[in-house]
Nucleic acid binder design. Structure first.
Length: 415
RNA sequence: GUGGGCGUAGCUCAAUUGGCAGAGCACUGGACUGUGGCUCCAGUGGUUGUGGGUUCAAUCCCCAUCGCCCACCCCA
């Protein structure tokens, strides 16, 4: 046998039992997010290409070379969303949600698309679960969002992760910092890697988290953003750290952390795990106080994060084996006459919420063998004898106990 | 887009200097006319990723191509 079709590169299937783990993670998210006042929002996978250009920034690789874009039949430029925030912000502005009482809090989940070379923890179609909060500038909301993310990860079963934090300033102080960076790196430009030479022009902040050795050597004495923050940003970040301390949420400051998306202001954070390989971020986010107004809405401070489902499931799976339960009851039907009774009995049990499997064909022996391999709890046998007598034989496969019960009473055994 | 590693049964892997493609597990059935697990037996399953080349002969050597994995880049 040879498969005639295979899934596209970087767009893998997720099969049971892993799908059970996904459900567990999503359920944990829904529960926790709900407690924090977040409601689910569903936005389209398809958006105008322009939306991402304006939010993520045209200089970022995501927009420059990783978007799945095409022209539709009416000659509009369409993209498959590479991330979730832009769509949610678009919906917030489009539906005038700023007129609802602040803060407005949403969470979302679903597939995102980036045309990248796949590797560990990176796919072309990947799933994110994220949250966005609009209408509060107070650092308390930053703290609340981060505490919520931690609670979610804990509840999902993730262990051994760490939180890194930074503030990258606002439109008052960041331009000056960029200037200081350029002044610092300018004399060393020839030593930097080609990528960083490009970054020097496009986004000097990104030189700070380059992994090339000679670049990290050069930046040893580079100016720190923390020393360039304006008074408001400094206060905001200080208050946030105090709140996290009060919550005993452990974090490490990473003054070199820069997020890849242009829209971030002030707080940025990243949750990483050592078990992931090079793509070690399991969730990341930050504040984006300017994006709503850039999309035509009123000036509205906002913040959010997104977590990668594949990355979560990868490392939670490696820590805990996720079992899949077999049917509680397996109904062996022997002979063609038994099918109706088997289906009827199965339906009654299923209506009671039991997981039931009917063995439609094969000898009784082979059906029992199948029931055992599925991990069934009980078997009910319906064949010629049982139909005649009107009472069904049953057996508990776990302890070997067996008996016989009137057809109409059988469902009482398991409820 | 760039680099490295790997492609043999559903899965994990063998196959001597190039010499008839195998095992374990899984699956299906039987031994045991209607009672699972244990045991034994049998069966299904392969164009050795694909296409060329070298050779009397290629899973093995060469070239190309596709796929997967890891890393760069980027990022969840």
């Amino acid at each position: 046998m040879k498969a005639r079709f295979t899934a596209l590169k970087g767009a893998p299937d997720v099969l049971p039992p892993e799908t059970h783990l996904w459900s567990k993670i999503e359920n944990a998210a829904c529960e926790v997010f709900c407690a924090y006042g977040y409601d689910e929002i569903k936005t389209p996978i398809l958006e105008p290409a322009e939306l991402f250009l304006r939010s993520i920034g045209s200089s970022s690789d995501i927009v420059a070379k990783e978007m799945y874009s095409f022209t539709d039949k009416a000659d509009r430029s369409i993209s498959l969303r590479p991330e979730g925030t832009a769509g949610v912000v678009r919906a917030y502005v489009e539906h005038n949600l700023s007129l609802r009482p602040a803060p407005q809090k949403f969470f979302y989940r679903g597939p995102m698309f980036r045309y990248e070379r796949p590797q560990k923890g990176r796919q072309r179609q990947f799933y994110q679960i994220g949250a966005e909060c609009f209408g509060t500038a107070h650092p308390g909301m930053d703290a609340e969002l981060i505490v919520m993310l931690m609670a979610f990860l804990e509840k999902a079963g993730l262990r051994g992760f760490s939180l890194e934090l930074n503030s990258i300033g606002c439109r008052q102080c960041r331009p000056a910092f960029k200037q200081r960076l350029k002044e610092f790196f300018g004399p060393h430009l020839d030593v930097l890697c080609p990528d960083c030479q490009r970054r020097y022009e496009q986004n000097p902040l990104r030189i700070l988290d380059c992994k090339v050795e000679r670049c990290s050597a050069v930046r040893a004495g580079a100016p720190l953003i923390s020393e360039s923050l304006c008074e408001d940003c400094r206060m905001h970040f200080g208050t946030l750290l105090g709140l996290l301390d009060a919550m005993e949420t452990p974090y490490t400051l990473n003054p070199q952390m820069v997020r890849g998306l242009d829209y971030y202001t002030r707080t940025v954070f990243e949750v990483t795990s050592g078990q992931l390989g090079a793509q070690n971020a399991v969730a990341a986010g930050g504040r984006y106080d300017l994006l709503v107004s850039e999309f035509g809405g009123p000036e509205t401070p906002a913040l959010g994060f997104a977590a990668g489902m594949e990355r979560l499931s990868d490392i939670i799976l490696s820590a805990t084996a996720s079992g899949q339960a077999g049917p509680e009851v397996f109904i062996a039907s022997v002979g063609g006459e038994a099918a109706a009774a088997a289906l009827k009995t199965a339906s009654a049990l299923r209506a009671g919420g039991k997981r039931v499997e009917v063995g439609w064909e094969g000898s009784l022996k082979s059906q029992l063998r199948r029931a055992d391999k599925m991990g069934a709890g009980h078997v009910v046998i319906i064949g010629g004898d049982e139909l005649k007598s009107g009472s069904f034989k049953w057996k508990n496969l776990k302890n070997g106990e067996s008996g016989e019960t009137a057809a109409g009473e059988i469902f009482k055994l398991f409820i």
